[in-house]
Amino acid sequence: MKTQILTAFALMAMLTFVACGNAGEKEKTVQTDSTDHSGQDHAKAAPAAGTATVAQVKDDLLNAVYQQYSSLSKALVESDLARAKIAANAIEAGAKEMKNADALGKSAAKIAGAKDIESQRAAFSDLSNQLIGLVKKAGMGSGELYVDYCPMALNDKGAYWISGIKEIRNPYFGDKMLNCGELKETIQ
């Protein structure tokens, strides 16, 4: 019973954050972010134009964590340290409710505790790799997600991330190199 209450509380907190974080947008969805990382609403545009289709991971808890991950990615693209911390805290809370997600929670905690945006971006790589594995294992209930890669991230070591849009919006460099990267894989 205690676990169910904690799970419900964590989900409510995550969903509240998603709703509050999108307060100024014309169209809202709990399943995916319908804006690209430039802040423009493209909910009615064709998917090929770089918009998110309705994508939902089969596992409900993982889907809620992915929504926060999407907010985190957007915050990193926009170099917003405070919003990134909030999203990372929500990911950490969600990971605590999931099985086999301890590493995901620890990576999220590193991002939440980071003192600067560059440290957050460095920790984002581990978080992304873990989330990619979990999403692939769970599978998609609907829509598709994209695994993107930037070869220049982390001092040219390269790093991956998940996106709900085909258009590259690089969380590792933000506006310095917003479109640096390539789509490597589609998760369907």
Rank of each mutant, 00 (worst) to 15 (best):
S70G: 04
A55G: 11
A13G: 12
A48C: 06
L72R: 03
S73N: 13
E25A: 14
S38E: 13
S70M: 06
A64P: 00
T51R: 03
H37I: 01
V57S: 00
A84W: 00
P47G: 02
A88I: 03
T7E: 13
A88G: 00
D33M: 03
A19P: 01
K28M: 12
T7Y: 05
S70W: 04
Y66C: 04
Q56C: 12
E27S: 08
T35L: 10
A82E: 12
L11F: 09
A87E: 02
Q68A: 06
T32S: 08
L62P: 05
A19I: 15
Q67K: 11
A82N: 08
Y69W: 08
T35M: 08
N89G: 06
D33N: 06
D33Q: 04
A23G: 10
A87G: 01
A87P: 01
A43S: 15
N89F: 01
A84R: 02
C20M: 13
A8L: 09
T16Q: 11
V77R: 00
G21N: 06
G24W: 08
K85W: 02
G50L: 01
D60I: 14
T16R: 05
K26P: 05
K58E: 14
A49K: 13
M12Y: 02
D80R: 01
L61M: 11
M14F: 09
Q40T: 12
T32Y: 04
T29K: 07
V54Y: 10
G50V: 06
G24I: 13
G39K: 05
E25S: 13
P47A: 10
K44L: 11
A84Q: 02
E78A: 12
N22S: 14
N22M: 12
R83W: 04
N63D: 14
V30H: 09
N63Q: 12
G24P: 07
A23V: 15
A82C: 03
G50E: 01
S79R: 10
D60Y: 09
L61F: 07
T29C: 15
A82M: 06
A19R: 08
D60F: 14
Q31P: 04
K44W: 09
D60A: 15
K85F: 00
A13Y: 03
D36M: 02
D33C: 04
F9R: 14
Q40I: 05
D59I: 11
D36V: 07
A75M: 07
T29R: 13
E25K: 15
K74G: 04
T16W: 07
E78D: 14
L15S: 07
A82I: 09
T51W: 00
A10I: 00
L72Q: 04
L81H: 07
H42L: 13
A87S: 10
A23I: 15
A48F: 07
D36H: 03
K28N: 09
G21V: 01
V54E: 13
F17E: 03
L81N: 05
